[in-house]
């Protein structure tokens, strides 16, 4: 790697040992664990030619699954954007009893295994569940419908939004808000013109992270979704089904689309991070 030479020219000779070794270990490990497997996935679907790839992707069942995964992930991310902003605002700006407990609970979706979350949500929203029964009475069915998928994705995505904007909110100085108020702005004007623009990059980052997680989510969704082909069957589940049928090209084609989406999301996140850092 010509990497180090350039770096050496810029500053004094490297006094700390172990750079080559640790960078080598890092690159080697990444290649074995993530990069080579993902590269293998990217190559696989072309074995039947581009035409075969397109045929698989444009089958109604695959299209419906992709549309459902990306669509419900986008809606869940928007729900999380609104509620995550409100939750983060309340938890950082106000003091009230049990605030610390509520704040600690935000991380639950990170810590709770997705399969556990999945069966819990499914039991909770089932016809005889604590929430499912009353909702059924007013005519809303959640479990085994696309609405159930949305509930699971909101559950899994909330901490991404809250935890991304909380530090920015905590660091934000009150001076700008006070100045706005002194100059005659109403509280609502101050929030819309001062607070929201400051938070915007972090809010976008958090929402994108929630979206990325939701698109690929499997464990918390499959128990509550009902998994009806073309209605409530998400793309990751269809990959699992294709694998169980030993249809490797079919599974790989869906996987490649999802992987490309991941790369696009990662790129968007990097651009957002750069904007965050420039602030």
């Amino acid at each position: 790697m010509p990497v180090t030479r350039q770096a050496d020219r810029r500053r004094k000779p490297d006094a700390l040992p172990g750079f080559r070794l640790t960078l080598g270990v890092t690159l080697f490990y990444l290649c074995i664990i993530t990069l080579i497997p993902l590269a293998a996935l990217l190559i696989q679907p072309w074995s039947n030619g581009f035409h075969g790839f397109i045929t698989i992707l444009t089958s109604p069942r695959v299209l419906a699954a992709l549309k459902l995964s990306f669509g419900s992930a986008a809606i869940a991310a928007l729900v999380n954007m609104v509620f995550g902003l409100l939750v983060a605002w309340t938890l950082t700006r106000y003091r009230f009893p049990f605030r610390r407990v509520l704040d600690a609970l935000i991380d639950l979706p990170f810590a709770l295994p997705t399969a556990v979350a999945g069966i819990a949500l499914s039991a909770l929203y089932a016809q005889n569940g604590w929430l499912g029964a009353p909702l059924e009475r007013i005519g809303i069915k959640v479990a085994y419908t696309p609405l159930g998928i949305l509930v699971a994705l909101v559950f899994i995505g909330l901490p991404f939004v809250v935890r991304t904007i909380e530090p920015i909110l905590a660091d934000m100085s009150l001076e700008a808000e006070e100045a706005a108020a002194t100059l005659g702005a109403t509280r609502l004007q101050t929030l819309a013109r001062i607070v929201l623009p400051t938070l915007a990059p972090a809010l976008m980052t958090g929402t994108t992270l929630a979206f990325a997680r939701a698109v690929g989510e499997y464990g918390s969704v499959i128990f509550i979704a009902g998994n009806l082909p073309r209605v409530s069957e998400i793309a990751p589940l269809l990959i699992v089904i294709r694998l169980e049928e030993f249809d490797y090209p079919g599974a790989a084609a869906i996987g490649v689309i999802m992987l490309i989406a991941s790369f696009a999301i990662l790129l968007a996140l990097n651009l957002l991070q750069r904007r965050l850092a420039r602030r």
Binding site: L27, L38, L41, L209, I239, Y248, A252
Partner: peptide, 23 residues
């Protein structure tokens, strides 16, 4: 390099498993 390390956060776990099955 930092982005590559964070890559698994944005890749679906099912896709990760799929990649290993393909190999």
């Amino acid at each position: 390099l930092t982005s590559l390390i964070d890559l698994p956060f944005s890749v679906s776990p099912v896709v990760a498993g799929l990649a290993y099955v393909l190999i």
